[in-house]
């Protein structure tokens, strides 16, 4: 998937992946896509909740070799 910005939150625990995602989205334009990489397994549900609460669509959520990869579109 194409993305405009990438953030690696590997090694960070709750709630840092969410807080860093929020920060990363702050200086992006509407419609741009953020790729987030995390190792915190709690991030799967947290990212979905973040998407539901903030209205930024979570385009995909997948696991690859122990890492969780998320693509989020800025609303």
């Amino acid at each position: 998937m194409n993305f405009d910005k990438e953030f690696d939150a590997s090694g960070l625990s709750c709630p840092l992946p969410i807080l860093k995602t929020k920060k990363a989205l702050a200086d992006m334009a509407s419609g741009q896509v953020l790729k987030l990489v995390a190792t915190d397994s709690g991030a799967i549900k947290d990212m979905q909740a973040f998407a539901d609460q903030t209205g930024n669509p979570l385009l995909s959520s997948a696991e690859e070799g122990g890492k969780y990869i998320f693509f989020m579109k800025k609303k």
Binding site: C14, P15, I18, L19, A49, F50, Q53, T54
Partner: peptide, 11 residues
């Protein structure tokens, strides 16, 4: 602090 910062991130 965790709940306050996360809630703020959620708007």
């Amino acid at each position: 602090f965790i709940l306050a910062s996360t809630a703020a991130a959620l708007g």
